[in-house]
Structure formats: C-alpha cells, structure tokens
Design a protein around this nucleic acid. Structure first.
Lengths: 230, 230
DNA sequence: GCGTGTGAAAACCTTCACAGCT
DNA sequence: AGCTGTGAAGGTTTTCACACGC
C-alpha cells in the first residue's frame, strides 16, 4: 500500500518528540489523511493498535518497516550522473530510510572516476558486475529520455527487478520488473491544469470547445511544447 | 485529469516521427495505458477523434495542451537552491513544456548572487516582489523538510496557489492552494515493498505476524529509518 | 471493415457508523 | 468513556462490449 511510507514518516515525527502512543486521529492528521482510512490501512497489516488507547509508536513503526521491507537495507544504483543524478546521490533521505547508494554509473567515459557524494562514478559497462556483487537492488534511471529504454534493458539483463525512472519515457520491461515513474514536468502540468481552472477567466471568450479551427496549428504559441514540425 | 500530460508526451513522439493520425490502441500503447481508458479520457474533453480512422496527432495535441493550460506559459519559482534545486533549475523538461523558471530563492544570504542555470539566486525576502511581478505562478519547494512549512506559508502569503513540494513534509495550506508532493524516498520504499514480496523467502521463518515481542526495539537494524531513541 | 464514443458492469477505494474491547 | 477494527454504504475509476459513424 502506497501510504505506508507516509505513515512511517509521520510516526517518525512522533518518535522524535518522544510520544509513546498515538490515536488514529492524531496520526492521520500528521500524515494528511482521514482517520478511518488510516485505521483501514493499518488493520490490513494486522491488529497493532489497542482499543481505547491508540497505537504504540515504536511498535507500529517496526511493524510498518517490516511490512515495507525496510528491516533490511536495499542497495541502490544510480544510472546517469547529470544534475539530477548528482542530486539523488547526495540526497540524505535515502540513506536515513534504509537505502544505500552503492554505485553511480554513467555512459560518458570522461566522467568515470569523478567522485560524487563520496562515490567514484563508474562506467556503464560495470553494471552487471555491480548488480552481481550486491544482489537484489533498485536501479534509478536519471538519464535523458533517449537513453532510458536502453538503460532499462541493461538493468533488467543485469537482474535488477525494481526501477525508479526519472526519464520522461514509458519503459517496456517484463512483467516481473516493477517500474515507478517520477516525471517532474508532468507534476507541473497537473498544477498548471488546476491553476488554469482557478483563474477561470476567458472561459466564454475562448469560444466553444468543439469548434474545429483549421488554423489551429498557428494558434499554438511558441514554447508550449510544440517543438516538432507544424 | 492526471493522465493528460502522459498522452501529450506520447503524442509528441508520434509528431516527431511525422505520424499524422493515431488509433487509440497505438496511442495507449505509447502512453502505457489500455485503449478503453484512453478513449474514455479523451471523450471527456470532447469528440476529437474520427471513427474508423483515429485521432489527428497535431489537433489532439493542441486540444490537450489547451485543456491543461499550456497554451500560455507559466512562471515557476524555485525555493531552496541545494542539489535538488539546482537540478530542477537546470532541468530542460520544464522550459520545453510551457514552463519558465523565473526566480531562484534561497534563505542562505551567502548564496545570493550566485548564478545557477543562468539565473542569479535571490534572497528569500524577494519572494513577494517576484510573485507580484509575474502574476499567477507555480512555487517549487526544494528545501529541507524543516523549512518547508514556513516556505509554504510565505508562498501562500505571496499569492502563490500552486505548489510542488519535494520536501518530505506534509504541508498545511488553505484549501484554495493546490499542493503536489514528490517524495523520492517514498518512491524507493514502494519499490522495496514490491521487491520484498518478489523475494518472498523467510515468510515462514519470520514467525506469525501478530506475535508481540517485547524486545522488538532491539530487532530493528541500524539504518532502517530508526534514527530516534529506542 | 475499422475504430471511436459510450452506456452498463465490474472492480476498486473511501467514508460512515457502530460493535466490541480496554 | 474512549478508540480501534470492520461490515455496509457510497463514490469513483476501470474495463467490457457494442452501437454508431466514417
């Protein structure tokens, strides 16, 4: 369940404040969900609360961590050490949550040996050796979109079955491989969509939605994502 | 609808290959969804396809762009110019899709004036001036979690109503403000969860889920997200 | 014939509301 | 008295399957 990590983080803030037990109401507030949903989610893991009292913070933390699989720590390898790859390599949130960046790979031979976040960048060809060395691990793709599919294929061939993809491309992988996608510009586009409806000016002036104007190509402003031919 | 940007990107790849029309099947494949869903989504915008033929690529692109609000381009301001903030400032995917980074803000006075991605970093106090100058814009929070709520408050006070939050914190904002959250370590945790069930070793050895061991605190390995007191 | 557009069915997720335990 | 755990209700999303138009 995708909300467990959120609960885990919220529990962490209670633990930091030395709170021993929380009610579903309090925890739900800290996690930004409603309390019934939180209770349903937790009941799915088992009965870890006490009626009339609440949930014991440390115990629930442990149970959720175990459920997610954070009681072991997972090796992470990052492919593509550009701006984003470097930011990820330096991101403290990984190491503090049960992940360990074990290798940085880049296709550019000129970058090999460069040290980022305390790790030497290695050539992409080292992938299978690294994967073999660390066992089941998580691959992070931080390359341009044009390289993403090829990298994904190499990761799969090297035995990686969990991929976090930052490249704006849909990856084709076997069903046995999990891919999660984080697309920064899509997030912005969703915000733009809502922003637009909030400022619902011009609604009438735009004309009806279904008018099919043969000149529509000319109406697209520059910079709106229409880099191709007209 | 959150999938429109994905369709838009997929349409872009067809446009780049000079494809004039696509069927729902083809487009759905490129977008990674099933064709019935794609048709339902598109029918929600209006009848922009032709039965027996498919969708005209350029026309559908324009209609989706318009729906999302990308026919104008949105100013983006980034708060927190650490590793991630710099990566975002340099990220080419924004500018190519109707967004323009107009300001980089950082609370550290020592960073003011530093040039990142062709823009001078400005002190955080400039926020309201920047927001006033550019009208409705999108705020990106790339600060540590501890600063995120304060930054969010300042953004809202400056009139920003759309926020993309990369800090691992739940933000409290008025209902009129949209917040989208990207949490890198949560994505990894979700992958870890699936990875763990794929390698479903030890299931029997772990013992039953509901055994309540009073020593559980001691069983939590270091580095699994338990930085707090035991 | 082919592929869109769309009711109807199915699956899924969220919320309510309260029984049951502490 | 208070709070969890959970059936039942309600809502939303996904899928099916086919009528309709090109």
């Amino acid at each position: 369940m995708a909300r467990l990590p959120v609960y885990l983080r919220a529990l962490g803030t209670f633990a930091d404040r030395n709170v021993a037990t929380v009610s579903s109401e309090e925890l739900a507030g800290a996690a930004g969900v409603n309390s019934a949903k939180l209770r349903k989610d937790l009941s799915y893991l088992g009965s870890y609360g006490t009626r009339g009292v609440g949930y014991e913070v440390a115990y629930l933390r442990y149970q959720i961590s175990r459920q997610i699989g954070l009681t072991q720590d997972w090796p992470v390898l990052i492919v593509g050490i550009g701006n984003l790859g470097q930011a990820l390599a330096n991101y403290g949130g990984f190491v503090s949550r049960g992940f360990r960046v074990v290798a940085l790979l880049d296709a550019d031979p000129a970058r090999a040996g460069e040290v980022v976040a305390g790790l030497a960048v290695r050539p992409f060809a080292d992938l299978s050796a690294v994967a073999a060395e660390h066992g089941p691990c998580i691959g992070v793709i931080a390359t341009p979109a044009s390289a993403a599919q090829q990298v994904a294929g190499a990761l799969v061939a090297a035995g990686v079955r969990s991929i976090l993809n930052f490249a704006p491309a849909v990856l084709a992988v076997p069903d046995s491989v999990d891919v999660r996608k984080v697309d920064l510009s899509i997030e912005l586009q969703i915000l733009a969509y809502h922003e637009q409806r909030k400022t619902a000016r011009f609604v009438a002036l735009d004309g009806p939605d279904d008018v099919r104007d043969p000149r529509f190509g000319a109406e697209v402003p520059a910079g709106a994502g229409f880099g191709g031919r007209p």
